[in-house]
């Protein structure tokens, strides 16, 4: 299978950003994941084609990093931090509550493809522990109760775009620091929302 022309153009632009094509592997893996919701064998083969690697070399790189998911994930990946600061302030309880509310055990994806729930290592939000990310968009100061509400909101509203600012206002508590101006952009799916990857969007 080949990618649509628009995606191919984007892939070529990504390759052009680097002195050597191999450097484009990581952004291209995000791009590939974006196409099919997870990193498929075909996706890895495509990336190999752009970077002059063999498929297994691409898989080797991809499988090294936690954020490239080789199994299909839900529309919303809910990541709960359980590293030391969050651990001290109840990260594991939040994880339990979220998993329960989403109906998906940690490390798994629900059968309906709505949620993936995972426990993650420190996400750099220790000052607002316990911290949670939805599709890598951050919420700080989450409690078991607000974590449940967060899941219910996702299930009920099915937002196309999730933004940190909205979630923080609705479900967050203590923050690591003042966040500054509202960020209107957010994630449009379970791939980190970053401009050149075409994964970010604005809520309608």
């Amino acid at each position: 299978m080949t990618w649509p022309a628009e995606i191919q153009a984007r892939a070529e632009a990504i390759v052009a950003r680097y002195p050597e094509p191999r450097s484009a592997v990581m952004p291209l893996l995000y791009l590939a994941m974006r196409q099919e919701g997870s990193l498929t064998l075909d996706g890895m083969r495509q990336v190999a084609g752009y970077t002059g690697l063999t498929s297994v070399q691409v898989e080797s790189v991809a499988s090294f990093y936690s954020m490239y998911k080789r199994e299909s994930v839900g529309d919303y990946i809910v990541s709960v931090c359980t590293s030391i600061s969050c651990h001290l302030l109840g990260g594991e309880e939040v994880l339990g509550a979220v998993a329960d509310e989403a109906g998906v055990p940690s490390g798994k994806t629900g059968a309906d493809g709505l949620f993936s729930v995972e426990s993650v290592e420190c996400i750099g939000a220790c000052g607002g522990a316990p911290a949670v990310q939805v599709n890598y968009e951050l919420v700080e100061g989450v409690t078991s109760e607000s974590g449940r509400r967060l899941c219910r909101w996702l299930a009920d509203d099915r937002p196309q775009v999730v933004t940190s600012d909205h979630m923080q206002a609705e479900f967050g508590g203590m923050r690591s620091f003042e966040w500054g101006p509202d960020e209107s952009e957010g994630a449009t799916g379970p791939v980190p929302a970053f401009g050149p990857l075409g994964t970010s969007g604005q809520p309608s």
């Binding site: 064998l41 890895m44 063999t54 498929s55 297994v56 080797s60 499988s63 090294f64």
Partner: peptide
């Protein structure tokens, strides 16, 4: 120059393998 066998996964899960269908 035939890099067809590689490390997959990381840390304690690291294993050697080939690509699933290659």
């Amino acid at each position: 120059g035939d890099p067809l066998i590689e490390f997959i996964d990381r840390g304690n899960y690291t294993q050697v393998n080939t690509f699933p269908d290659e």
